[in-house]
């Protein structure tokens, strides 16, 4: 009788399906991940103080934002791109001159961001505004002179 030789089983990890599994995972991540906005404008809030420093009206520059987006800088209508040039001589005399942004409650949020961004961009144009303040309505009612 002829005895059949035992077939040799080789040790092997089956990797044939690895590419399929990997591609399924890739499809999952591609579908669930979103291109969310993760950048923005930093906006540090001051610490709450019981006795905040009083800024005299004459010492500061007041930028009022009206409902349509028009700007009144120290009471004078001004386009957004003229604000930095207006501030330049004042900041040369006093680099810490406070600039107060006061948006009208009925104005749109986007206009406030536009003004704030313009002032922050001033550093690149040689007009660095170091002291920007955006008081809230509660603070205006409590401390406004």
């Amino acid at each position: 009788m002829k005895i059949k030789r035992e077939t040799k089983v080789t040790d092997e990890i089956p990797t044939a399906s690895m590419a399929d599994v990997s591609f399924l995972l890739i499809v999952f991540f591609m579908i669930t991940s979103t291109f969310a906005a993760t950048r923005g404008l930093d906006f540090s809030l001051p610490e709450q103080e019981d006795n905040p420093p009083v800024v005299e009206k004459e010492e500061s520059v007041l930028i009022e934002i009206q409902p349509g987006g028009q700007l009144l800088v120290d009471g004078t209508p001004m386009p957004l791109d003229g604000v930095l040039e207006y501030l330049r001589p004042k900041l040369e005399r006093n680099p810490l001159k406070p600039v107060i942004i006061r948006p009208d409650p009925a104005s749109e949020y986007g206009y406030m961001v536009d003004v704030f961004d313009e002032l922050r961009l001033g550093a690149e144009k040689g007009v660095e505004v170091k002291n920007i303040s955006i008081p809230t309505q509660r603070e205006i009612q409590a401390f406004w002179f």
């Binding site: 923005g40 930093d42 540090s44 709450q48 948006p103 104005s107 949020y109 809230t136």
Partner: peptide, 25 residues
């Protein structure tokens, strides 16, 4: 959005002693 609503939210964050705020843009 009307600034009034943003003002209320910023005021709430100030009162809660939040320091680091980022305006998403």
């Amino acid at each position: 959005v009307p600034y009034r609503i943003v003002d209320e939210v910023i005021d709430a964050l100030k009162r809660a002693n939040v320091r680091n705020v980022f305006l998403l843009s």
